[in-house]
Amino acid sequence: MSTKWGLTIRGICEFNDKILLLKIRSHSSHDAEKWEIPGGKVKKSEFFDDALKREYAEETGLEIDIKELHAVVRKDYTTCKTKEEIKSIQLVMNVTCDSDVVKISREHDDYGWFSLEEIDKMIADELLTQPAIEAFKN
């Protein structure tokens, strides 16, 4: 069986010199209790900017504006349901929002606004997902 390729879009949102991260739910099969950059999979025939705005609204309740490309990260994983091997290209964009009031979805247990120094410590303590680590190293 051939390997499939997927596209994921994420957005680094800075508000009042802090960056928004979401904590993956504790019972997740991937990266449980780690912190990640908001975003998700791009659906078939969906423009990736539309996907990022949709995912942000679903996961955080925030409306965002996309500014520029921040990083491109690759993450390979195995799907939970079908056990397919997926090679995922993750586009990480810089985004802005007009509020820091977040309403998280059921996909996450918590959220926080963190300084770059706090994020560096989270990386050292292995509390971030691999794509987030790669994005913040750029």
Rank of each mutant, 00 (worst) to 15 (best):
H70T: 06
K43L: 15
N94E: 14
L20P: 00
D125G: 03
D65P: 05
S28L: 01
K43I: 10
A135L: 10
K81G: 15
K34G: 00
F15D: 01
L20V: 00
W113L: 09
G6E: 00
E107R: 07
T3F: 08
A71Y: 01
R10I: 07
T8D: 15
E126N: 14
I24D: 03
E55A: 09
D100L: 04
I9F: 10
W35Q: 07
K75L: 12
E33H: 05
N138V: 15
L127V: 05
T79C: 04
A71H: 09
I24S: 04
D49I: 08
E33K: 12
G61R: 04
L69H: 05
D110N: 14
M93L: 11
W113Y: 15
K103S: 09
H108P: 13
N16Q: 07
E107K: 11
D125R: 05
S105G: 00
T79W: 02
H70N: 11
L69K: 05
E118G: 01
S105C: 00
N138E: 14
S88C: 11
D31Y: 13
D109A: 04
K81W: 12
V101N: 14
E107M: 10
G6T: 02
G11Q: 04
R10Q: 15
H27C: 12
G40R: 05
K41L: 14
A71K: 03
D49G: 10
Y77E: 15
E58I: 07
V92C: 09
I123H: 02
I9S: 07
D49S: 12
A57M: 10
E58L: 07
R106G: 12
T8N: 13
